[in-house]
């Protein structure tokens, strides 16, 4: 009984499926909401950087050297290219091809590890300390913000990969893989403006 009211049965839901993919899935909306939160965080950090940049006559201030282009270029290239296997992975998820999904996740994990390696060297070549001046602080803020997303994404991918290889895979897990892949795309997209802001805007100014 629902309270004191008489019920009138007008339909039955038993025939509905018990899972769904993409935007039909409830979890997809949670994932997209967290992207909105973090995207806002990125946008505000970029806004803060632009604000400080606009306040100071020189960016970087005289005496600071520009961040190195080598390792960052390699990182950026690798990151952007990683979208190709990522798109392939999403297609395999839609096709529900378990073996290829497992393989795709393994590849993405390895790519993630490689990217962390590149990022490590990239951070060595920022050529400014975070405590040196506001320019240094801003650069490091943007880098730390993005690196933390790469690390989080890598851990999630790695854990999911291990799980996929050791367990029976159901539709819910395919949904998880898709959310994970979507998130990877988000991490790539977030890097583009940060890369320009950290490495190229100071050179163009």
């Amino acid at each position: 009984m629902n309270g004191e009211r008489a019920l009138r049965r007008v339909g039955d839901l038993a025939g509905l499926p018990t899972s769904a993919q993409g935007p039909r899935n409830l979890v997809w909306w949670g994932n997209i909401s967290f992207m909105a939160i973090e995207g806002t965080g990125f946008a505000l950090a970029i806004g803060a950087c632009l604000y400080l940049l606009g306040q100071s006559p020189h960016w970087p201030p005289p005496g600071d050297s520009l961040p190195g282009l080598g390792w960052s270029g390699a990182f950026t290239l690798a990151l952007v290219l990683s979208e190709l296997p990522n798109l392939w992975l999403i297609r395999q998820v839609r096709a529900k091809s378990i073996a290829r999904v497992r393989l795709g996740m393994l590849v993405m994990t390895l790519i993630g590890i490689a990217l962390i390696g590149l990022r490590w060297f990239e951070l060595q070549h920022l050529n400014v300390g975070w405590d040196h001046d506001a320019y240094g602080s801003t650069v490091w803020m943007l880098m730390v913000l993005h690196t933390s997303h790469v690390v989080t994404e890598l851990v999630e991918t790695a854990v999911l990969t291990v799980w996929l290889y050791t367990h029976e895979v159901g539709d819910d897990q395919l949904g998880d893989v898709e959310d994970d892949a979507d998130y990877w795309t988000f991490v790539i997209l977030a890097w583009v403006p940060i890369y320009l802001l950290v490495y190229w805007v100071p050179r163009w100014l």
């Binding site: 939160i37 965080g41 201030p61 405590d131 001046d133 506001a134 320019y135 602080s137 801003t138």
Partner: peptide, 27 residues
């Protein structure tokens, strides 16, 4: 996210000596 970023920057200034809010260092 705006307040989390603002308070995180404040903590960074206090904890690891970043210069976001130090006018003398371009903040």
């Amino acid at each position: 996210p705006a307040i989390m970023l603002a308070t995180s920057m404040l903590i960074a200034d206090r904890l690891v000596s970043t210069q976001f809010f130090a006018p003398a260092a371009g903040g």
